[in-house]
Simulated scan of single mutants.
Amino acid sequence: MEAFLTSTAVVTLAEIGDKTQLLAIVLATQFRRPVPIILGIFAATVANHFLAALVGSQVASILDGQWFRYIVAISFIAMAAWTLIPDKLDDDMESKPARFGAFLTTTIAFFLVEMGDKTQIATVALGAQFENIFYVTLGTTLGMMLANVPAVFLGHELIKRVPLNVVRMIAALLFLAIGLWLLVQTAGWFG
């Protein structure tokens, strides 16, 4: 259950103001059909985050050792710093006309944009930390949906009203806390 709750919280906060959330807003304004967009976000996220959690879990099982736990902890601390850097959607993505319908366009775009994104990297780290592909994927997918579904429905209004700097700070603090906790656990300072 810890894997699920931590994964949900980390990705929900990290996704606020992320380029995939901006993509959700762009797609919502372009297609004006929320259900296919939401289903496309869900499909892309399940596929992408399952693979990321699988990679993290497999790497953790192969490289199980104290030094690897230090690397995972440091990766969370690095994610804290990365979270403070605002994302922006590439200008050329907004101007391209869609070849396919809302669902397929969203699925493909979200899957590709999520590659190498901080939420995907966080999912790899969470998979390595918890070694539970199912709960990490479930949690990170829920986190993506919690952050992106309101963006689909509320679009630009949401971005105007949510103080993104505060949300970025909270997400960064969460990543930092997880990283520091893992360092403390690995070093054996508290039991």
Rank of each mutant, 00 (worst) to 15 (best):
W67H: 15
F130I: 02
G127Y: 03
G191I: 08
P150T: 04
R33M: 03
F68D: 09
F103E: 02
L13A: 01
A81C: 08
I41L: 06
A151D: 01
V26M: 14
V167M: 15
F76N: 10
K160F: 03
V10T: 07
A125H: 05
R69C: 03
Y70I: 11
P36N: 11
L142D: 02
M79W: 11
I25V: 14
V11G: 09
V162L: 13
R32Q: 14
D64S: 14
E114R: 01
A24L: 03
T20H: 03
E114V: 00
G143Y: 01
T12W: 10
L54G: 08
I85W: 15
T45S: 15
R33D: 11
D64H: 14
S7T: 01
H156C: 00
V46W: 05
A177E: 03
T29H: 13
L183H: 09
G179Y: 12
W67Q: 15
E114K: 02
E157M: 12
A172K: 03
I74H: 11
D91C: 02
A53P: 06
L182N: 15
A128C: 05
F68W: 12
A171Y: 07
G17E: 04
F130C: 05
Q129D: 14
A177C: 01
A125C: 07
P34S: 00
T105F: 07
I108A: 10
M93Y: 13
M145V: 00
T140S: 07
V124R: 00
V59A: 10
K88H: 14
Y70H: 06
A24G: 05
L89V: 01
F130V: 01
T107L: 12
G179L: 08
F110P: 05
T137H: 05
S95G: 09
A28T: 02
F100L: 10
M169N: 12
G188F: 02
T20E: 06
M115Q: 11
Q21R: 02
F42Q: 08
N148Q: 09
T106R: 05
M93H: 10
Q21E: 08
I85V: 15
N132W: 06
P150Q: 05
A78V: 13
T45H: 13
E94C: 01
A14T: 08
L154C: 06
V10Q: 00
W67V: 13
V35N: 02
I16N: 13
I170N: 06
L164Q: 15
A98T: 08
L13R: 00
A147M: 07
T6M: 14
P36K: 13
L23R: 01
L176Y: 11
H156M: 10
A43W: 07
M169D: 10
A14Q: 04
D90Y: 14
A81F: 14
T141L: 05
L183W: 12
V113M: 12
P163H: 10
M1G: 06
F76E: 07
I16F: 15
D90A: 13
G191F: 12
G40M: 00
S95D: 13
V167T: 15
A147Q: 07
H49E: 10
A187I: 03
G139W: 05
G127A: 00
L174Q: 08
P97Y: 11
P97I: 07
